[in-house]
Write a protein that binds this DNA or RNA. Structure first.
Length: 411
RNA sequence: CGGGGAGUAGCGCAGCAUGGGAGCGCACUCGCUUGGGGUGCGAGUGGUCGGCGGUUCAAAUCCGCUCUCCCCGACCA
């Protein structure tokens, strides 16, 4: 712990208006470099990596294949689809030394369609689901709320290619299901609602929102069935239950694009009937950093972050209370090592600071579990476990620790 | 881009109306102390007062320009 680069703050930073931003700064997860541009510090990165790996796992299970596309994109491609003129000043443009137009990718429809048109020849290559996790650049009119809306941010974007509308429906449903699994695996309550397609274009689209009181979007949700909407619905046709109003943070968006890009960029394949047809496309985004911020919005209290287990930067912190007691120190180190050997992400607080200081900081950073080495541990070999999410404290012996931690992880 | 606010030590701020010592709390360093909820005491380190120009014997303070950051609106993962 003493070696960990996690510069925490006792006081609330003035620039942070929303709780997730404030807590990320206070917990030493991020720092700002410029408006809408952030350093991701070790704790922040660990959490992001957890989310990214959950995303990878679920997308791979849904037949997605990961690749990495260029962030640096020639303006030519954007001129082909007309978005060079349409996208506006949000697109960060510049010229290279030969005065050719370039931009930093805010999204990758053009680039993925370019590789698709070059390499997809036959219906036999379809369906194809390609995704990447990459830094995107958007010169937002007004960056705000920390990593919630920044100018440089990590996004997962997946693109589906199908031979026909029927195939697109299948791919779309696969992604819809994968998204549901992703947010559930992150330990988050989410809701999916019909949405407008916006600048991306296309037909059907859904937004995925994380439920949090501080969310910017109002959602009407039926407590009985799965119906939800961003608009007011007077009655729920099937079940007649009262719709309840919730607030949500948009973290994912899926679109059925159809042939918007494949036609304008001439991305055709030869179908079974020997005819050339445009690829039917879909695109599917998740804001990784925004998901992390939303998780904090949904899981915190006045003392700090209450990480869902699966996306916590670390799972367990071991806190020795008695600093001058060698047995206490050794016990903390040994228990921490035991947990690591058992596959947990545990660290122990080896700093020469008061017990209260350690407790406050452990709560702030939001370790799901604190293992406290106090009087009882030294006299009666009883460890104390504090569960961050509900504040409960439990006693156990060292022999029982493994089983107890395992149980907490599974809950 | 329109409207509002702020730049003084790493962080949070006072000082500015009425020009003349650059201060407070936290953090940091050292010593002692304390050790179950950001211990206490003492001694220290650290600042071109966002930048440029002007007024003045003298500018953090007055005037002009400029840069940056934050908040509200249109946009979005």
């Amino acid at each position: 712990m003493s070696a960990l680069f996690a510069p925490t703050l006792k006081e609330n930073p003035t620039e942070a208006e929303v709780i997730s931003h404030s807590l990320m700064l206070r917990a030493g997860m991020i720092r700002q470099l410029s408006s809408g541009i952030y350093h991701i510090l070790p704790l922040g990165l660990r959490s992001l990596e957890k989310i990214m790996n959950i995303v990878r796992r679920e997308l791979n299970r849904a037949d997605g294949q990961e690749l990495l596309l260029p962030a640096l994109q020639p303006g030519e491609l954007w001129k082909e689809t007309g978005r060079w003129d349409i996208y506006g000043p949000e697109l960060i443009r510049f010229q290279d030394r030969r005065e050719r137009d370039f931009c930093l990718g805010p999204t990758h429809e053009e680039v993925i369609t370019d590789i698709a048109r070059k390499e997809i020849r036959s219906y036999r290559q379809l369906p194809l689901l390609l995704y990447q996790i990459q830094t995107k650049f958007r010169d937002e009119i007004r960056p705000r709320f920390g990593v919630m809306r920044s100018r440089e941010f990590i996004m997962k974007d997946l693109y589906s290619f199908d031979r026909d509308q029927e195939g697109l429906q299948i791919s779309y449903q696969k992604m819809y299901d994968a998204y549901s699994k992703i947010f559930t695996a992150c330990g988050l309550e989410y809701i999916a609602v019909r949405a407008d397609s916006g600048v991306i274009g296309g037909d059907l689209s859904h937004e995925f929102l994380i439920i949090a009181d501080s969310g910017e979007e109002k959602v009407m949700k039926c407590p009985k069935c799965l119906t939800a909407s961003t608009q007011e619905i007077s009655h729920c046709p099937e079940c007649q239950a009262e719709m309840e109003e919730k607030r949500g943070i948009e973290v994912g968006h899926i679109f059925q694009l159809g042939t918007k890009y494949s036609e304008s960029m001439r991305a055709y394949f030869v179908d079974q009937d020997g005819k050339e047809k445009p690829l039917i496309m879909g695109c599917y985004g998740i804001g990784i950093g925004r998901t992390m911020a939303a998780a904090i919005e949904a899981n915190h209290d006045e003392n700090g972050i209450k990480w869902p287990w699966n996306i916590a930067p670390y799972e367990i912190i071991v806190i020795p209370v008695k600093l001058k007691n060698q047995a206490s120190i050794e016990l903390a180190e040994s228990i921490s090592q035991q947990l690591v050997d058992e596959g947990y992400e545990a660290i122990w607080d080896d700093r020469e600071v008061s017990a209260g200081y350690k407790f406050k900081e452990a709560d702030l950073i939001g370790f799901p579990v604190q293992v406290i080495i106090g009087e009882k541990a030294l006299k009666n070999s009883i460890l104390e476990i504090k569960i961050r999410s509900n504040g409960k404290r439990l006693d156990c012996t060292r022999e029982q620790l493994t089983a107890m931690v395992k149980k907490m992880k599974n809950d």
